[in-house]
């Protein structure tokens, strides 16, 4: 399992269009990819292949996400997803 922190670089945050693109990107990998937004009262987790869960993260511009990838291509998956998220 690989993990990394990334700051959202999309001006509008992870909104519909950005979320859709993230799902399409994540689908290219075999690894499972999870986004975690630390917060109060509890952290929110999202499956990068589920557009509804990504939208429910409500991750805005400048928000820090913890990204976890696990699977055969976890390294590349983490790299590309983080690259996309940082804008």
């Amino acid at each position: 399992m690989k993990e990394r922190e990334v700051v959202i670089g999309h001006e509008l945050g992870l909104h519909a269009r950005a979320a859709a693109k993230l799902v399409q990107l994540s689908q290219q990998f075999q690894s499972s990819i999870v986004l975690v937004r630390a917060g109060e009262p509890q952290s929110v987790e999202a499956d990068a292949r589920s557009i509804l869960s990504i939208l429910l993260l409500a991750a805005r511009f400048g928000c820090t996400l913890h990204v976890r990838a696990e699977g055969a291509d976890e390294e590349e998956a983490l790299e590309k997803v983080c690259e996309y998220l940082s804008g």
Binding site: A16, Q24, D47, S50, L52, S53
Partner: peptide
Amino acid sequence: SFLIDAHLLILQDKLF
């Protein structure tokens, strides 16, 4: 057509 992308993605969303 990206809005339709979003709809299509909801249709394959596990959460749903």
